[in-house]
Every structure is written in C-alpha cells, then in structure tokens.
Design a protein around this nucleic acid. Sequence first.
DNA 1: CGAAACAGGATTGTATACGAAAATGTGCGA
DNA 2: TCGCACATTTTCGTATACAATCCTGTTTCG
Lengths: 228, 228
Amino acid sequence: MNDMLLTPGTAEYVAAEIERAIHEHRLPPGSKLGEDELAEVYGISRTIVRAALQGLSHRHLVELKRNRGAFVAQPTVREAREVFEARALLEPRTARSACERMTPEGLALLQAHIEAEHEAVHAGESGRAVYLSGQFHVEIARIADQATIEAFISELVSRSALIIALYWQRRAALCESHAHHALMSAFEIGDADMAEDLMKSHLLDLVTSLDLRNRASFPGSLREALAQ
Amino acid sequence: MNDMLLTPGTAEYVAAEIERAIHEHRLPPGSKLGEDELAEVYGISRTIVRAALQGLSHRHLVELKRNRGAFVAQPTVREAREVFEARALLEPRTARSACERMTPEGLALLQAHIEAEHEAVHAGESGRAVYLSGQFHVEIARIADQATIEAFISELVSRSALIIALYWQRRAALCESHAHHALMSAFEIGDADMAEDLMKSHLLDLVTSLDLRNRASFPGSLREALAQ
DNA sequence: CGAAACAGGATTGTATACGAAAATGTGCGA
DNA sequence: TCGCACATTTTCGTATACAATCCTGTTTCG
C-alpha cells in the first residue's frame, strides 16, 4: 500500500524493511538486531545498518544499548498510555481536517485500504492486517495534508504495533474493521463532527482492549517471565 | 536550564550543541554544517558528526542533501503553518494536564525559568532569551509528565526557533513574557481551564506575529535574496 | 563443591582510507 | 569576449580495520 520507491542498499530502505517487520509482528519486541547479521542480509556494510538502527531508535522502535547492541523496543505500560494519550490529542482533529478536505481520490484510497485489510484478515495474514489497519490512520493524516502531524502519527502508529504485540488481549478482534468502516461512512457523507467523534471513540476502544495493568513492565522480560 | 549531563565527544552531545546554537540563532537557517569542520571543532571523527547530523535531520532541524552536505533547515511557510498547527493540537491540553498535576517544585522551576528569561532579555542576550522562552513550553510538557508528548513539543519548539528566525516581524516583542506570566498565574491558582485557554491564545498570538505570506519560501535563499 | 577470577570469542564503537560525486577553476576555441 | 569542455579540488558516501567492551565458558583457589 505504501510507496516502495526506496532504493535498496540505503539506510532508509533497511530501516523501512525492519520497521515493516516490526509492524507485522515478524520481529517481536525484544528481538536482537545484530549489526553483522543485518549487514549480511542486505548485502551492505555495518555503516548503513548503524544509520538505519539509529533512525529507528529516534522513532522509539528500537532501543540502542551501549556496547550491547540494538533490540526491538519493549514499550512499558506507562509508555503505552502515553502513546495513546498523544494519539488522542492528534488524531481526532486530524480526522476532522481530513474529512473537510476529503477528495474522491482520498476516498478511493481509503476504500482500497479497507478492502486490503479485509483480504489480509481472510487470508489469515494477521501481521499484514495489523500493518494495514495502522497505515489507515497514517493515510488519514496524509489526506488531512499535514505532513508534520502525519510524521508524528506514523511514529505513534508504529509504536502502537509494538504495544499491541505486548499488551493485546484476545477478545474483540472485529471492532477494528467496524470502526474503520464507520469512519469511512463519515468521510463519505462529509460529516466532520462525526469523523472526529468516531476517531476519538475508536482510539478509546483500542486502549481499553489492551491489558495495561501494571505488571512491572518488561525491563528484563526474562525476570518477568520466570518470577512466579 | 537544561541538563548538561551529556558526555562530550558523543553524538548526543554534539547534536545538543548544534541544536542549541540553532535555537539561539547563532546558526541561521541555511548555514552549511561541514563534517570535517565540525569534526575538528569537537575533536572527534566524522563518524560521530554524521550520527549527530542524522539525528538532527530526524528532528527536521537539519536538512541532509545527498552528496551536498548538511544545512540548517529552512522551514517553508507551509511547514511553519504545520508546526503551529501541531502545537495547537498538543500544547493547550498539555498545559491543562500540567496545571492539574502541578507541584510546588514545578511551580518553582517555571518561576526560575521566567526569571532567567527576564535576565537574558535585560542583558541583551536575545538568542538566549529565545531559547529560554522555547524551553518554557517544553518544561510544561515535562511537568505534565508526558515524555512522549514532551518529545514532540521539544521538536516543534526547536523548529519554531527556525521559523521565528525566518518569519518574525519586528513588532510585538513583549507579548512573550506577558503570556508566560499569565500562564504562571493560571498554574499558581490551579485553574486548568484558564491554563488551556491561555496556551491556546498564546500560540495563536505567536503565529499571527509571524509574516507567513507566501513569498515563494526559501528553496535557494540566494535566488530569493537577489531576485528584485 | 562453590564462587570468584580469568581467558577466549563475539560484538559493538570509533577512526580512517579510499572511491564517488559535485562545485569550482582553467583553458581552449568560436 | 563568451561559452563550453576538461581538470582540479573539495566534500561527502561507504567500507573496512582496529580498539574497547561485554558475554560466556573454564579454571583455580578457598
């Protein structure tokens, strides 16, 4: 769905690949990202890999531990709350803006997006489904024509993928598509108030579908897993 | 006012130094940031300098032109509008949160901040004054105890410094301190609604004090300066 | 037998060397 | 004199070499 016009071998390309893998839950939180390993995979030197990892760490998707290496980030419960707090500030009014500036092309884009989501869900590609449902929010920001806010939302959506990987609780798998469908309706009839409200409650639904009780977060992940 | 606990010789240290210089208008928009030059200044290799510059480019403070080098960013009029749009979404409600969670320590911190601003203004250190008045907003986000939003606001404030350098129009030099004083009053009496409203109008005042008419932005800066 | 010290291996941190691209300066020809 | 092509110089992009650090498995001593 997103542009693939990044030339292979660049730091941006490698970063995008890793980010997508994180987003699709192929790289679970805590995964070690060895520099030599990545360099070999992409046929480049560690210089580029390091640039990519540094970029990802600025987006809080990767944690760089000095002399230890790079790891896929493990957002704490607190971080998770903060991310959705930020989304709650940015996204509803961005959905409003998008609705006000909606074009036929934008509408078609979002429609195609939703259909791709459905496909992924039915094909059992849950990773891709999670990725697409996140990108839906980014597309809305893009339609709102706010590049700065879009960049923030893009980061928050990616971090949300990590949060979902860590704190998602089984129940409620269908609310997603419903919420996106509802938003589409609002966009179609051009009801900006409705779009804003729907986005607000959609985000609220998302947080409440997480298990954000303070279970000591995951600094070690092992200590946590074994300390019965 | 900010922590100086970054060990010299690291990319973070160099990035912080450059960012501060940008913020204080010692490095005007468009300045060339040569790698060899910076490496010599800080007594390090280009490796570290490049890491620092890449970090700054992720915050949109530096523009990296392939095979050309790094330059202090020159936000366009459109970018300027977007930055303040984003600030309008984030900061008022963050000021509210800060007000609700205000502590005596936080109050004292902000008070000291304002006094430092006054000092800088009276000492004629306009660069430092601009820097401090920006940091005031970041401190509020910190008091609101929202690290994620704080990071966003920090970036937006830094970009605002560039925008001010480019688009500020003389008049209205005193509104700044007034607005910050008014905010302090709201914090002191714990009036969250007032804090939110004051921040909202403060940001509005800021944008309206800029000259954001489309004067072809500054892609070249030279072409612009000489095309009479 | 257990714990601390030690050595080996693996991985990251930094500097530097070399190649590539762009900007600039020079000289030739029209 | 002007313009174009070529050479030079500067600066960036990438790879690689080496040093520093950490982890782990082993040894040694109490």
